[in-house]
């Protein structure tokens, strides 16, 4: 005999010899999948400032009907543990990006300009505060 009671509440009804309080679950006929009629809510890119003084940083994306909803959803999805003090949302279609296939030539101009870095300059050790 069982020491404790097992519940089949809303979850499951097919274990043989199960609980004394199991209720048969009403089986609804499985409906055929409806074709997708609705257009998805637009996609938004989410940027979060984790604390005052820092930049907003891209954290991911989500769907929302409008900007207002995107901000609220971003709060629920991306700041459940106080990860942010400010949220920016931008509809994804407005993001323009550089082309990764052209990355090599695109960033090439910066490639041969080592003199832009402070370490390029060889200076005597005696020189301080520089």
């Amino acid at each position: 005999m069982d020491l404790f009671r097992k519940y089949f509440y809303g979850d499951y009804d097919a274990i043989k010899g199960g609980s004394n309080n199991s209720q048969p679950v009403e089986q609804k006929e499985t409906q055929a999948i409806q074709p997708i009629e609705n257009i998805e809510w637009p996609l938004w890119e989410i940027f979060i400032r984790s604390k005052q003084g820092l930049d907003h940083k891209h954290v991911g994306s989500l769907h929302a009907a409008d900007a207002h909803m995107a901000v609220e959803n971003a709060r629920d999805v991306y700041t459940r543990r106080l990860e942010g003090v400010s949220i920016w949302v931008v509809e994804s279609k407005f993001i323009h990006a550089s082309n990764p296939d052209e990355a090599e030539s695109f960033y090439e101009p910066a490639n041969d300009k080592v003199y832009r870095h402070p370490t390029f300059y060889d200076l005597p050790d005696e020189l301080t505060h520089m």
């Binding site: 979850d11 499951y12 097919a14 679950v25 609804k28 499985t30 409906q31 999948i33 409806q34």
Partner: peptide
Amino acid sequence: PCNKQRLDARKKAWE
């Protein structure tokens, strides 16, 4: 044991 219940619950939530 619960495949059908789980999928039905998801479909119902969607509908």
